[in-house]
């Protein structure tokens, strides 16, 4: 089992580049430990800014830094940085077009037992609705590395959500196909395609394996790029599969499922069944306990696929 969380990978990549790129600045809102960014603060204190528990200031300051050519990475719990400072993301980052990268850590229901105040089940919907804001949910440590490397090369705002816990690998050191803003196709399903993002990709891959063993042809689309959304990949999947299943650690409203259904309905009408968090405070527990309860695991996803093909 992998022990390296995606947040730790972000710190590693930023530290590797900060040595030669003095414009990289990391900002935290009393969140350097939670974000695994303490090593960055210790190694590059002149490129690290602490703003205290003040997300609006965090994002506003980041925009000011970016306006002067800095490359700020502002890391704060996803629940807070996606909505407490939503207007700063909208105006200071997206509208003013500043090169701010917002890192939402402990996203989704990572803080399971801490309750709804600490869950971010609406960050995809919120951030995707902002013009000029890009949204990414990488699925494992290898893809996270590719994503941050790619983001370091551009100068536009983006929101990146990662979870708190280390995730089982989807890819490997030597096999991590990655094209920016293109979903990664894992297998080819003529019966069903499972479209997933972030932490839900691994159980989706496992569900596809179970289904294939049963003689149901299943493939997975790792939609790490929620915006710009890879509509072409979804249309292609809808054309070659009999049904589409979406899986996301997010509300049903305005997330991966909604965007997938929108694309399918417009371009290639096909059955789309969605797996998502409920429209209510999420039950208390560890991430895995919560996922199991809502059927957001390999067996639950496979079950939904069978149901889609039956009806």
């Amino acid at each position: 089992m992998n022990k390296i969380a995606n947040r730790k990978v972000i710190c590693d990549v930023l530290m590797e580049h900060a040595a030669t790129d003095k414009d990289i600045v990391v900002l935290c809102s009393d969140s350097r430990g939670s974000a695994s960014l303490t090593p960055f603060f210790e190694a590059y204190p002149a490129q690290a800014v602490e703003v205290g528990i003040a997300e609006q200031d965090l994002v506003g300051i980041s925009a000011g830094l970016a306006h002067c050519g800095k490359k700020p990475y502002a890391a704060s719990p996803a629940s807070f940085v996606s909505t407490r400072s939503y207007e700063q993301a909208k105006i200071d980052c997206a509208y003013s077009n500043t090169n701010v990268k917002l890192i939402g850590i402990s996203g989704g229901i990572s803080y399971g037992a801490l309750g709804m105040s600490h869950h971010s089940a609406q960050d995809i919907a919120a951030m995707c609705a902002i013009p000029n804001m890009r949204v990414y949910l990488p699925s494992d440590r290898f893809q996270t590395r590719c994503l941050i490397e790619a983001l370091l090369k551009d100068e536009k705002p983006a929101y990146i959500r990662v979870g708190r816990n280390p995730l089982e690998d989807v890819y490997s050191e030597t096999d991590c196909p990655f094209e920016m803003d293109r979903a990664t196709k894992i297998g080819h399903g003529t019966d069903v395609t499972i479209v997933a993002c972030g932490e839900m990709v691994k159980p989706s891959v496992e569900a596809a394996r179970i289904l294939n063993e049963e003689g149901i042809s299943a493939g997975v689309l790792d939609m790490f790029c929620l915006k710009p959304f890879d509509t072409d990949a979804v249309i292609s999947a809808a054309k070659h599969s009999k049904a589409i299943i979406t899986v996301e650690e997010h509300s049903l409203f305005g997330g991966l499922g909604a965007m997938t259904a929108q694309a399918v309905a417009a371009h290639c009408p096909e059955k789309v069944l969605e797996i998502a968090l409920p429209d209510s405070p999420v039950i208390t527990g560890t991430s895995q306990e919560v996922f199991d309860y809502y059927g957001m695991n390999a067996e639950g996803i496979a079950k939904k696929a069978r149901e889609a093909l039956r009806s």
Binding site: G60, A63, C68, G69, K70, D92
Partner: peptide
């Protein structure tokens, strides 16, 4: 309420 935090960021960049 946006101008002051953004200006803090600009001033900080100039100092850096």
């Amino acid at each position: 309420g946006h101008g002051l935090p953004v200006s803090v960021g600009i001033a900080l960049a100039a100092k850096m």
